[in-house]
Design a protein around this nucleic acid. Structure first.
Ligand code: SF4
Ligand code: SF4
Lengths: 141, 141
DNA sequence: TCATTAGAGATATAAGGAGTCTCTAATATC
DNA sequence: GATATTAGAGACTCCTTATATCTCTAATGA
């Protein structure tokens, strides 16, 4: 059981976008080169992020992507939900009344989600910026 | 991202075994019928549990499986590790120095594991027994 | 008009999950 | 000792999903 690579790409993309000057647009070409990905593949991930309302896209020449206006509320969980979906990790299709197994598994997952919800991308991005490490400069790889 | 079915089967098997009289053996045939599985398939899962030291097997006629002697210490996490392995959910192969993304993802996963570690199978089993629900009677399905 | 860019759709490839079949090894019972 | 029973290992099939590419369409600035 592992997060898909798409989640990794999405997180890096979001951190990069959130560090851009306000209202400036970044094209998929640049985002893909940064992560050594094919533009069309990353495009699919960006579309998911757009549909989830985390970023906004502008088509046409000089178009591209920018972080949505709610950027100060975007958490790790938001990004993960956009790429991985929101189905439960433990998904027994039967759902017996008062199942104790589901109760434990769901509570554990909730603990993880709670942490991912409390961590905002903007905080991570700012910290990376102050440290001047790869995350801030865009040189992840 | 989802737990494999094997984890589900393993958990049900463990709960069933933990409720058996001390030292009594249960064959894979019975365990498989209970969950509507083929014996050879469940056998692979049982072998994992055996190698993880959670249960003990006895080959030959009248053989079968029983819970290990450490049953009062077996947690949900133990069972999950036996079936899913112990690799991290977020596994970026690069590991940049001081990566803030990994830090968040790992902490979140740790919160989930911590919960799964604190929940013991024996407690769940006893509670199910007292409630006389499907988990105690072996009628999960 | 034309170059540029996002987005949708079909398709291809690889990997892993789920499950079956067959053979071997060990053990109790007769 | 012969036989039935049971765990376990290995090869194999089938199916789903992740990953990725290619091509076409739509929108937009210059
Ligand atoms: S007891 Fe819980 S986990 Fe088991 S089959 Fe019923 S709902 Fe599913
Ligand atoms: S910054 Fe972290 S998540 Fe990103 S490539 Fe480096 S180690 Fe991986």
């Amino acid at each position: 059981m592992r997060y898909s690579n798409a989640t990794n790409y999405a997180l890096h993309t979001m951190v990069h976008l959130i560090l851009q000057p306000r209202e400036s647009l970044v094209g998929v070409q640049e985002l893909a080169e940064m992560q050594h990905l094919s533009p069309t593949y990353l495009s699919k991930i960006l579309t998911k992020l757009t549909k989830a309302g985390l970023i906004e896209s502008t088509p046409g020449a000089k178009g591209g992507y920018k972080i949505s206006r709610t950027k100060h509320e975007i958490s790790f969980l938001d990004v993960i939900h956009a790429t991985e979906g929101d189905t439960s990790l433990f998904d027994c299709s039967i759902h017996h009344e008062g199942c104790l197994i589901e109760k434990v598994m769901w509570q554990a997952e909730e603990n993880m989600k709670s942490e991912l919800k409390s961590k905002l991308l903007i905080d991570i991005a700012k910290e990376a910026e102050s440290k001047q490490n790869g995350m801030a400069t865009g040189r992840f790889f």
